[in-house]
Design a protein around this nucleic acid. Structure first.
Lengths: 339, 339
DNA sequence: GTGAAAGCGCTAACAG
DNA sequence: CTGTTAGCGCTTTCAC
């Protein structure tokens, strides 16, 4: 299988290289008949343009970068990311982009790889996830005009596109539900307060308390890290303060909380009700099955890709925003009887 | 920040483009002093070579492809893959390769992306995981002489490099341990029998029975799919046949099995002992903590990358093989008392 | 509507 | 040890 080039195809089809290029790129100005003939040669030979040459001559790499800093902490602890990646990968496939993964485990790695992201040499655009609110990467990307979509809104009103979910409302709904069940001491196991998700879900919790004029009890709130072990520790920490319900900012942490509760000999939902956030598959198979706030993780991934492609093709301004709704999924972990 | 090219750097440093290229690529034949001067200009300007130009002129893309077919079924159901990816990503980072993800959800996607893998245009080499034994991709890669490392040995003795773990021995050890505890009806929840891992772990199970002349009871073996739900169903199916121990071919399935046991009102390890395979973090936090066969997942990823780079640099023959040992980790799920 | 020609930025002989 | 010279395969004006 000797190397096929545009030139060869051109010869075989009896046209010029430019024409073949036009056909390959779906350029309109080619006579239908010629187009057909060229296309046939392409199909018969199984020609595929060389991506490197294409990137060099054109200005695009055809690659989308998925950037996840702090990969150590989260990615391999929370099934959220695999699902997100699945959505992203699938969308990349359908839109003919290649997906590249940039996982930073250390500051060093981040430093080293950042330039590759900033100069559009490697990627046509990037999707950002799991960023701390103050990550310097965001302003850098903006300044370098790299097409960027954040998963989760940024801390400040930056001119950057993002996909988000209604974390505040979702948490509000969950906590309100707990409150409606009669719980008067609702605790919160929060996500990291240097992430927007963590902050927003906590805000929803506070809003729900406020909407019923329930005073805030600091001893019932703990900041954790979205990990199972973190949820476990947080729950242990809260337990002495006698909560009768707990809002946990992710299913994974909720699993840890459940473990702590079980160890403490508490019955869920009789002694204490619990709701999670995400609706990962494991929520449904937890013991007891977990009431949780569903977010359409995979779809978020797909939409992020599509938004990014829009940015790449149609320019960065104005920034695009999308916020997906959440949905409270009621299961046994907080006494489904009332429902 | 106007575009920096080799040429510009060359001018600034007062040398020729080739010399700069040599410096960038660590070519030995450059006078130390010149090298220093050039390097300084590079550092000051923050120059980075254009990967596209590089791929085009040289013959390498600097990209490693991680290929996971059947991504739907496994990847997002089993924490195994995220961990593997972590190892791979980290190794790529340290060796200055970019990692691209090829997740196939459907046959169509596989068909569509395969050519991109086969012509070394996109990737310098590929790492294969989660392949069914009869996947046509393997022979195709071999035939096209694409540097390839499989995670998990292939079905037949193909001239392909791989990283594996001692699945047979690991399973043998686990089942022998169960047997040694006095269990006389040891069941097996197997992985898919069209994957080598599934096959090998089952073989280990059979070997252990055989080594003690225990007759095989077909009703105690079920083929499943490495998912939690699959483990749950498999366990339910086995339960009527009164096992007093069960070897489950993955921790994720073991979790499902545990759930089935719990629902059936059986006590672990008193009524029935259970061991898993993988030693994922969740094994330690399961209820009860899971005895399991540990495999060094992350390290496998690192080694796969390093083996692949070796292939890329030093040629494909002879194929390289490496089999990592496993280790039985004893926890409460099968009555740790005896140990 | 189509072809010719000029690079994109780099690597790799080949001279010197 | 260093500079010169061809390309790598494609996109993209610019003529015709």
């Amino acid at each position: 299988m000797n190397k096929l080039t545009l030139e060869k195809i051109a010869q075989l089809a009896g046209v010029s290289r430019s024409t073949v290029s036009r056909v390959v790129n779906g350029h309109p100005s080619v006579k239908p008949e010629v187009r057909r003939r060229v296309q046939q040669v392409i199909d018969e030979t199984g020609y595929h343009p060389d991506p490197a040459a294409r990137s060099l001559a054109g200005q695009r790499s055809g690659i989308i970068g998925l950037v996840i800093p702090r990969a150590f902490q989260f990615l391999f602890t929370d099934p959220y990311y695999p699902r997100l990646m699945q959505g992203i990968a699938q969308a990349c496939n359908t839109h003919n982009y290649i997906l590249s993964l940039f996982l930073f485990h250390t500051e060093e790695e981040e430093k080293k790889l950042t330039p590759k992201l900033l100069r559009q040499q490697f990627v046509d655009g990037v999707i950002l996830s799991a960023l701390p609110t103050d990550d310097p990467l965001i302003p850098q990307l903006i300044q370098n005009e790299v097409p960027t979509v954040m998963i989760g809104r940024p801390a400040e009103a930056l001119p950057v596109s993002y996909i988000d979910v209604s974390n505040i409302d979702g948490a509000f709904e969950a906590v309100s539900y707990l409150l409606g069940l009669g719980a008067n001491r609702v605790a919160a196991v929060n996500g990291p307060q240097n992430t927007m998700v963590g902050l927003d879900r906590f805000q929803g919790y506070l809003n729900a308390l406020a909407s019923r004029q329930i005073p805030v009890d600091e001893s019932l709130m703990v900041e954790s890290d979205f990990s199972e072990a973190g949820g476990y520790r947080a729950m242990q920490q809260i337990l002495p303060h006698q909560p009768n319900a707990v809002f946990v900012a992710s299913d994974t942490m909720a699993l840890g909380a459940l473990r702590a509760l079980r160890e403490a000999g508490l019955s869920v939902p009789d002694d204490i009700a619990i709701v999670g956030f995400d609706d990962l598959p494991l929520a449904a198979t937890a013991d007891p099955p977990l009431t949780t706030v569903r977010q359409p993780i995979r779809r978020l991934g797909v939409q992020a890709v599509e938004m990014l492609i829009d940015l790449i093709q149609n320019g960065l301004t104005p920034p695009r925003h999308f916020t997906a709704p959440t949905e409270l999924v009621i299961r046994q972990s907080c006494g489904a009887k009332t429902k």
